[in-house]
């Protein structure tokens, strides 16, 4: 009995740590404010919080229990795009937090052309990702 209680306590404690860490990470990178700013839906921010929480819980369920849904395979396209956009925003936010671009652009006197440098990184990410899945992992 006491061991069951201890296990439950441990589970809640570790879940609390991981969950708050996840939310803190998202908050620092400011992805959700950025999305509300782009779509002008500041009022819905509470709904977005719930979306993140429920999404995380769905992910927990999927990775712990591994259910099988038998859905048509094209639903994966939707999942892939949403996952990719989310990761892309995280990556972009991380580059921005690290303050890479302002310094780089100043150094090489390219003030007007940041878009070109961003495109280098964006295309590099797409290229690297496709290259990995199509060729790299099978060698």
């Amino acid at each position: 009995m006491i061991s069951i209680l201890a296990i439950i306590f441990l589970g809640v404690a570790s879940g609390l740590a991981v969950g708050s860490g996840f939310v803190a990470f998202l908050t620092v990178l400011g992805v959700i404010p950025r999305l509300t700013q782009l779509s002008k839906t500041m009022k819905m921010i509470q709904q977005y919080e719930w979306a993140v929480v429920l999404g995380a819980l769905t992910g927990v369920g999927a990775s712990l229990r591994e259910p099988v849904l038998h859905m048509p395979s094209f639903t994966l396209i939707f999942l892939g795009i949403t996952g990719g956009v989310f990761y892309g925003m995280l990556a972009a936010a991380l580059t921005e937090v690290l303050n890479v671009f302002p310094i780089l652009v100043k150094r090489i006197r390219l003030d007007g052309e940041i878009a070109i440098l961003i495109m280098a990184i964006v295309l590099g990410k797409i290229f690297g990702s496709i290259f990995q899945w199509v060729y790299f992992v099978h060698h």
Partner: peptide, 18 residues
């Protein structure tokens, strides 16, 4: 089927952010 949309979405997400 999952990986290619994921890869394109990765780039789209960065553009969306910036």
């Amino acid at each position: 089927l999952f990986q290619i949309p994921y890869s394109v979405g990765l780039g789209m997400g960065m553009i969306l952010f910036f």
